[in-house]
């Protein structure tokens, strides 16, 4: 997959960096970021990941999205932000935001799927989150607030809570939001389009 992030153990930091480059299939250390996690007598451990070439990625994404909008018969503005290892792309069109979002954001998920496939084909180091008029951000926020409330309820009652089916990006948001709450854990059930996140009491 993209934006590989992996941990490397070796005898020295220098060796670990070399191993990391090899593992990620990179030529030069300019293409990699690393952080030393542990450096001791028994060896070192570092975390390595691909560096995102931001100006290049941003340009590619901008071009691809403006072509897409043009083919859809509209124009719009594209805002791009770096968010963790991903590019967050917020599209505001002249007249099509509602159609691009669709009922409960369903059309937005299709656009996310197609645009990330298209852009991956050109540069598979880019991971992106597509939004239209900030819809996804707002929905994600509401979902996180709900997830926290349900987590408290699960802790209190000791019974599992199952979310409605959610697209991958929102499932990720729930997992991350809950991960720092003690006493509960999350997992996913279901297939393809109907995957649901379950909040469950953590095993003692």
């Amino acid at each position: 997959m993209v934006n590989h992030e992996t941990e490397i153990e070796a005898g020295s930091v220098e060796d670990a960096i070399k191993k990391g480059l090899e593992k990620l299939g990179l030529q030069s250390r300019d293409e990699m970021e690393w952080k030393v996690i542990y450096d001791g007598e028994e060896g070192v451990k570092i975390k390595v990941k691909n560096k995102v070439d931001e100006p290049k990625s941003v340009k590619l994404v901008e071009e691809e999205i403006s072509t897409f909008l043009e083919k859809l018969g509209t124009t719009g503005k594209v805002e791009i932000e770096q968010e963790h290892n991903r590019l967050y792309i917020n599209i505001k069109t002249k007249d099509m935001d509602g159609l691009l979002i669709g009922k409960s954001g369903r059309n937005l998920e299709s656009i996310q799927h197609i645009l990330s496939r298209i852009i991956h084909n050109k540069d598979n180091s880019i991971d992106l989150t597509i939004d239209v008029a900030g819809y996804r951000r707002k929905k994600e926020h509401t979902l996180k607030v709900r997830a926290r409330a349900f987590a408290e309820e699960v802790k209190r009652s000791g019974r599992e809570f199952i979310f409605e089916p959610l697209p991958p990006s929102l499932r990720r948001a729930v997992h991350l939001e809950i991960s720092d709450i003690e006493g509960v854990r999350t997992y996913t059930i279901g297939e393809t389009d109907l995957k649901k996140v379950v909040i469950s009491p953590a095993k003692k």
């Binding site: 859809l72 018969g73 159609l99 669709g102 059309n107 998920e109 299709s110 656009i111 799927h113 496939r117």
Partner: peptide, 17 residues
Amino acid sequence: KTAKAIRTIVTAASMKV
């Protein structure tokens, strides 16, 4: 999944037309 996504986008664009 991809076919479904293309259909959704085409349908959305057709609503505009």
